[in-house]
């Protein structure tokens, strides 16, 4: 299976790379070069097109939730990032010309938690799985990287191993991480 992952930054890529190993797919990364949900929304339609015409089986658009309200399955909330991204995807999909694909492009909008860095913190600190995802993103970043402005990607690479170890031991992961793994597997 070929998967295209569009993510916001290098640390997200590191964490999602670990997911790739667990799911066993061939993953191509594309990084939104400017940070922020507005940039993700602006490029979402073109990302969907690139995935469709590039022959990918699955597209994962990944963004941090930051301070936006959590997504609920039945709600339509203007500030909810999942709702907004899913609307972009839903608008783009019917415009895709048939190119003789074996199966239509599947998409996963992953806005799992305030900050994906929370999963690294869970892997590193043995904290309770749910609490860590509910911590404010600035708090998570401070806990992981302190005042350092550089070296985040390298540090993340180290902690990803610990995260993988915990998952391999069969520990119950944070809820949002579990959801992403299940979504990708599905």
């Amino acid at each position: 299976m070929r998967v295209l992952v569009a993510a916001e930054g290098p640390v997200d890529e590191v964490v999602l790379g670990m997911l790739r190993q667990r799911v066993g797919a061939e993953v191509t990364y594309k990084t939104f070069q400017s940070r922020g949900i507005d940039q993700v929304l602006r490029l979402a339609t073109d990302v969907v097109r690139a995935a469709h015409f590039g022959g990918f089986d699955l597209l994962v658009i990944h963004a941090d939730a930051d301070d936006s309200p959590p997504h609920q399955p039945a709600h339509v909330e203007a500030r909810c990032r999942v709702c907004r991204l899913e609307a972009c995807v839903a608008t783009a999909m019917p415009t895709l010309r048939d190119i003789g694909r074996a199966s239509p492009l599947r998409t996963v909008v992953a806005v799992p938690c305030q900050s994906t860095d929370a999963w690294l913190l869970w892997g590193r600190d043995d904290g309770a799985p749910t609490a860590v995802e509910q911590r404010h993103r600035h708090d998570v970043k401070r806990a992981l990287f302190g005042e350092r402005k550089s070296g985040h990607e390298a540090a993340a690479l180290g902690w990803v191993g610990q995260l993988r170890d915990r998952l391999d031991r069969g520990e119950m992961p944070p809820e949002a991480l579990q959801r992403v793994v299940l979504a990708v597997r599905r």
Partner: peptide, 17 residues
């Protein structure tokens, strides 16, 4: 690659990504 004549996002951003 995108199946259109014009990108939705500015072409510079599409290229940079």
């Amino acid at each position: 690659r995108l199946g259109v004549d014009r990108t939705t996002a500015p072409i510079g951003d599409v290229w940079a990504m």
